[in-house]
Design a binder for these strands. Structure first.
Ligand SMILES: [Mn+2]
Ligand SMILES: [Mn+2]
Ligand SMILES: [Mn+2]
Ligand SMILES: [Mn+2]
Lengths: 145, 145
DNA sequence: CAGGAGATGTAGCGTAAGCTACAAGTCTGT
DNA sequence: ACAGACTTGTAGCTTACGCTACATCTCCTG
């Protein structure tokens, strides 16, 4: 008789993939936010991030500690938060992807507010293959009618 | 001078929305899996779920405890897992949404394997508005060329 | 050059999810 | 009917990421 559950390579497990996406999500959102805040205001403080993410400053502190540990940011007590080279690269990558997903949703006809809300979660689960398709679609809709 | 950060309603915070999406994600995926396994094999055991999600049976046990607590499943020691009425409703809803997202990715031209991988994470961040657009797009591509 | 407001840090807590190791139940074939 | 294989349960650990309460620092303003 056939086995109840045919074996499949781990790499093909969708849930594993999703858990991995989530493991890198916080770092991606933080470096993206830090880059944006620095650009806009000159420097990024704990409070800015707390407001951005709608969490307490304590949660931000702990997140920053993890980002430091992972080499994405540099920060000293009572000082502003800076991106490392690695953090900057990740920020650029994340921002690009975020923009493409957002543009794509707009091109699909989703309202501005909904697009912004959905994109924040969606972006972390979009593979490079899907991202390419989204980009092509958005560009298509922009050039043609 | 203008405040460094213009105030915004909490409901508009994208990260808050994303965190809420994640809070309901496990329940959605579990009831969806339970419904599918019951349909296919007649009943759903702890082991089936452990394999499906690629986690240990311990993680499944704890997840089932939470699902019980939240009224989505009924289960007794050493017995199979059943969906409650509430759990069945959630399963149907989740399965519909999952299918639409998957169909949509296919219609976009994403490969079968990638579509399956991406859909598992994406589905939880798709608002009803975006889902409608995705459905329309998929249907469009199916009927026309 | 004090206050005091606001920002930051720390202690301690909670829940969700993951794990290994071990204990105990169930079920099947001989 | 029972041995062994498989399944399920439990104890105890870990990390991520939320929180409140309280302590401390910084920086502006009178
Ligand atoms: Mn995001
Ligand atoms: Mn997600
Ligand atoms: Mn699903
Ligand atoms: Mn899913």
């Amino acid at each position: 008789m056939p086995s109840r559950s045919p074996s499949r390579r781990q790499a093909d497990n969708e849930h594993l993939r999703t858990r991995r996406d989530h493991a890198s999500e916080l770092a991606e959102d933080y470096v993206e936010a830090i880059a944006e805040i620095v650009e806009r205001t000159g420097f990024c403080r704990v409070t800015d991030l707390a407001e951005r993410f709608a969490v307490s400053h304590v949660s931000v502190n702990r997140a920053i500690a993890r980002l430091k540990r992972d080499g994405f940011v540099e920060a000293h007590p009572y000082g502003p938060v800076h991106l490392t080279a690695s953090g900057s690269r990740l920020a650029l990558h994340s921002r690009d992807r975020h923009r493409i997903v957002l543009e794509f949703l707009r091109a699909l006809g989703v309202s501005e507010k909904t697009a912004a809300l959905d994109a924040e979660g969606l972006e972390h689960h979009v593979s490079s293959e899907t991202l390419r398709k989204m980009k092509a679609f958005a560009v298509d809709r922009a050039t043609e009618g």
